[in-house]
């Protein structure tokens, strides 16, 4: 806890609301509009996290945004966050250079229930930028491969140019430890891989659906179709988990900005079991 947080805590405030200062120690442009930042805590205190949790990134005078952690949970001394430039704060985050300072709150939320996959086939089903919040699952799974019956990464992107972490995907695909399937919605001349929607990959999984646990992340409409595909394949909804996204502000369940039905996603989520959202996902008003 830094000095400001300690002072606030002494006054009865919540230290979780005070950003900790971090320094940008590395940047990597992943796509035209996507950048990965590698951050180091200036107070020297590693930010330990569970796969699926998020932080609030704060740039003074600009604003604060929720971003999923995409790094290795076994390396908490480096906070890795992959950000798409879609607004003022994210655009400014993507423009940061090594040496820049940034405020970080968190980690927040409930992560992926990795224990639910022990002894089972773990299916990571990601679409678009949804690979960022699921990358820590894959990292964890590869490090704990002997505890799983199988590891299957199904990833879909809009175009070949929009495939996130392509080098890492190739590495995972080359490793016998993981079954990696990548597809794009629209092909280009340079693409010799699969063309089609990611949910179409589900029936090709080579095991009994009863033996699998699925963790799904991507645009909400993609998750809706993916859950339908998993259920159609024969998987029980109780074995499916999704990471939901809403407009998180406080990160600790106070403000209500991220409410989805009975759930405050920053506190109760972002990862929820499919039965918790099956009546909510796809509801236009929510």
């Amino acid at each position: 806890m830094n000095d400001a947080a300690a002072a606030l805590a002494e006054q009865g405030g919540d230290p979780g609301l005070v950003p900790r200062p971090f320094e940008v120690v590395g940047t990597r442009r992943e796509l035209d509009d996507v950048v990965t930042l590698e951050l180091a805590p200036l107070d020297g205190q590693a930010l330990t996290f569970l796969p699926g949790q998020f932080t609030m990134l704060y740039l003074p005078g600009i604003g604060e945004i929720p971003i999923s952690i995409s790094g290795d949970p076994a390396r908490p001394e480096r906070l890795v966050q992959t950000i798409r430039s879609v607004g003022a704060v994210s655009e400014a985050c993507c423009a940061l250079q090594p040496g820049a300072r940034i405020g970080v709150r968190g980690p927040y939320g409930r992560g992926w229930p990795l224990e639910a996959a022990l002894g089972r086939h773990l299916i990571v089903l990601a679409g678009g930028l949804g690979l960022a919040p699921t990358r820590p699952i894959v990292t964890w799974a590869l490090e704990n491969r002997s505890k799983l019956a199988g590891l299957h990464l199904l990833y879909g992107a809009r175009t070949p140019d929009a495939v996130l972490y392509p080098t890492q995907l190739l590495g995972w695909a080359g490793a016998e430890a993981a079954n990696v399937m990548v597809t794009v919605d629209r092909h280009s001349d340079q693409w010799s891989g699969r063309v089609g929607v990611v949910s179409d990959l589900v029936p090709e999984l080579p095991f009994d659906p009863a033996l699998g646990t699925a963790m799904v992340c991507g645009p909400e409409v993609m998750m809706r179709f993916s859950l339908q595909a998993l259920e159609g394949w024969g998987m029980a909804p109780a074995q499916m988990y999704v990471s939901m996204e809403r407009n998180m502000k406080c990160g600790i369940g106070w403000c209500g900005h991220c409410q989805l039905g009975p759930h405050l996603l920053c506190r109760d989520g972002p990862v929820l079991a499919a039965p918790q959202v099956s009546d909510l996902i796809g509801v236009w008003e929510l």
Binding site: D33, R84, V86, G87, S90, G156, M222, F225, N247
Partner: peptide
């Protein structure tokens, strides 16, 4: 169904459907 889902353009950047964040 797959053709219709492809038409939905699942991964359209948020900037194409409204600015956020």
């Amino acid at each position: 169904q797959a053709a219709r889902v492809q038409l939905v353009d699942l991964y359209a950047p948020p900037g194409e459907i409204g600015r956020a964040g």
